[in-house]
């Protein structure tokens, strides 16, 4: 059975359930927490303005992630990934304790989003493909290349176990 969520319900549902998700996605795609906050706020404005009807919570969540990624993409297109991770150099040289989130953030946009959505949110490659508008195989290769890059940069790699 299909349950529709729309308008204000969608907003309060999203606020209760997915604010952290939106913020996390935003943080993965912005240089600092202030930018991430701005983006997250904007996502909720978009949600209010859109008045969209969602099939269920998952549909709403996927929409929120997609909008967040797109907004970050539009806003921070000009920033290179070196700027995105302020201490990118530091953890490569081992001067500072490696921060795994920073390491993921240092990956190219698609890699890092795929890694986040797969390993943290538990989406399959097919679902990620739907959210990020890519083919399943493309997502799989993002994931494996992302893992490969992380393995090189982090001690002990980034294994599934």
């Amino acid at each position: 059975m299909t349950v529709f969520i729309k308008g204000k319900d969608a907003f309060s549902f999203a606020f209760k359930q997915f604010t952290d998700t939106v913020y996390r996605v935003a943080l993965h795609n912005t240089a600092n927490s202030a930018d991430a906050e701005d983006v997250a706020q904007e996502v909720f404005v978009k949600l209010l303005e859109s008045g969209k009807t969602f099939r269920d919570g998952e549909h709403l969540k996927a929409w929120l992630i997609r909008v967040t990624v797109n907004l970050c993409h539009d806003k921070f297109r000009k920033l290179s990934r070196e700027t995105l991770v302020e201490n990118a150099f530091a953890f490569k040289t081992g001067e500072e304790k490696a921060d795994i989130v920073e390491a993921v953030k240092s990956l190219p946009e698609n890699y890092r989003n795929a890694i986040y959505l797969h390993y943290y949110e538990g989406y399959t490659a097919k679902e990620i493909g739907k959210i990020l508008d890519a083919k399943e195989n493309t997502v799989l290769s993002w994931l494996s290349r992302g893992r490969e890059a992380l393995r090189k940069e982090l001690d002990g790699g980034f294994d599934d176990e």
Binding site: T19, D20, A40, I100, I115, Y120, D160
Partner: peptide, 24 residues
């Protein structure tokens, strides 16, 4: 460093109160 560390690290990222207030 592995998947579990990553999940733990991301778990620690939560929307700050200032953001919650703004959205509310």
């Amino acid at each position: 460093m592995n998947k579990k560390d990553y999940i733990k690290a991301v778990d620690n990222i939560t929307a700050p109160q200032s953001l919650l207030d703004k959205i509310e």
